[in-house]
């Protein structure tokens, strides 16, 4: 009988927490979902706003289901986004070939003469309409290497938010500078960049290797990867690319860990989180884009109006998570889950 009472009391305590409060005033309720679901949920009214990357922002805008209330360029200029990472940083030949192909592809995308072709590639890669792609391309900055200062700022945000479980010392680095030197591995990019500055048509030596490259489904930020394949940049340096598609960056980092891929295009957020928290030993050898995200709302037209609303982000500790936190803080709103 005593035991029964004890069990009943425990259960009562558990149930006491059940009174689910509505979203409080001055608070934004955050939920996580994949950007694909966000577009759908915004239309159905399951969420009031979302923070995501392209082409999902433009998709919601073009379909008339939402409007942009703040672009990431306004909130956090030059914020890091997608990057190119590898576990094989010490294979200099391979890294040079990969970086070269990436830089060539990025320059191809950024060359206004290729606009028509780029839009076509973007449509093929994402499976979205011309209208959506056109709109999306306006907000993405395709880059060759991420702004290191902004990356460090992102890292500081992660630390402050309690997202990082390990210190760089535990990962075997003397200091944070040491860690960043290894993690943001710019040497090869600098080399490729200088070679190309000397001679625009420089091509590194052929490596004649098969390389497995991970990328995310229909992520327009990673267009350079698709262009590099289509324009034959990989074959020019003797790389046979085996492309592996992942649903999100977390899964792709798992792919790195399990040795399924050697190179990957993915978000800087999962790359950093899993690099530190789970010690997945990757280095960032190039950047794919910066900016290119936005806050899209159904009815609200300012951040202040998001008070008491439900907003979706792609995951905790992502750049989008911080974008929302930054504007919320400015508007004097609190974030709850």
């Amino acid at each position: 009988m005593k035991r029964l009472v004890a069990i009943a009391v425990t259960l009562a305590i558990l149930l006491a927490g059940c009174q689910q409060a509505e979203v409080g005033e001055g608070k934004i309720k955050v939920v996580t979902m994949s950007p694909r679901d966000m577009v759908e949920q915004l239309k159905l009214g399951g969420i009031d706003a979302f923070v995501a990357w392209e082409p999902f922002v433009s998709e919601a805008v073009v379909n008339g289901n939402g409007k942009i209330i703040a672009t990431s360029a306004d909130i956090w200029p030059n914020h890091p986004c997608c990057v190119v990472a590898t576990t094989e940083k010490d294979d200099r030949e391979l890294v040079t070939a990969i970086v070269w192909a990436h830089v060539k592809a990025t320059r191809f995308i950024n060359n206004p003469d290729n606009r028509e072709k780029v839009i076509e590639y973007a449509m093929e890669f994402t499976g979205k309409s011309r209208e959506v792609v056109d709109e999306a391309m306006k907000r993405i900055k395709f880059i060759e290497y991420p702004d290191e200062e902004e990356f460090v700022k992102y890292f500081e945000n992660l630390k402050r938010g309690g997202y990082l479980k390990k210190s760089v010392k535990e990962l075997g680095y003397e200091s944070e500078d040491d860690f960043f030197q290894d993690f943001l591995y710019k040497d090869v990019y600098d080399y490729v960049n200088s070679k190309l500055a000397e001679n625009e048509s420089w091509v590194p030596e052929k490596v004649n290797k098969t390389v497995r490259v991970g990328y995310l489904t229909a992520d327009l930020h990673q267009l350079a990867f698709y262009v590099a394949m289509k324009e034959g940049y990989y074959s020019q340096v003797g790389l046979l690319v085996e492309a592996k598609e992942f649903a999100n960056g977390v899964m792709e980092m798992e792919g790195f860990k399990n040795g399924e891929i050697e190179v990957g295009y993915l978000g800087g957020a999962p790359a950093t989180l899993k690099r530190v928290n789970d010690d997945v030993r990757i280095s960032i050898i190039a950047g794919a884009n910066s900016e290119g995200s936005a806050i899209v709302a159904k009815d609200a037209s300012s951040i202040e109006e998001l008070a008491g609303k439900k907003v979706a982000i792609p995951g905790f500790g992502t750049v989008q998570d911080f974008l929302l936190r930054m504007v919320a803080e400015k508007a004097g709103l609190e974030i709850t889950t």
């Binding site: 679901d37 990082l164 889950t337």
Partner: peptide, 21 residues
């Protein structure tokens, strides 16, 4: 599988996604 804002399954999944937990 889907986001729910709270719940034990959601908790476990988010802990896995953020990593190191």
């Amino acid at each position: 599988i889907a986001t729910s804002g709270e719940g034990l399954g959601y908790f476990i999944l988010v802990m896995y996604e953020v990593g190191g937990r």
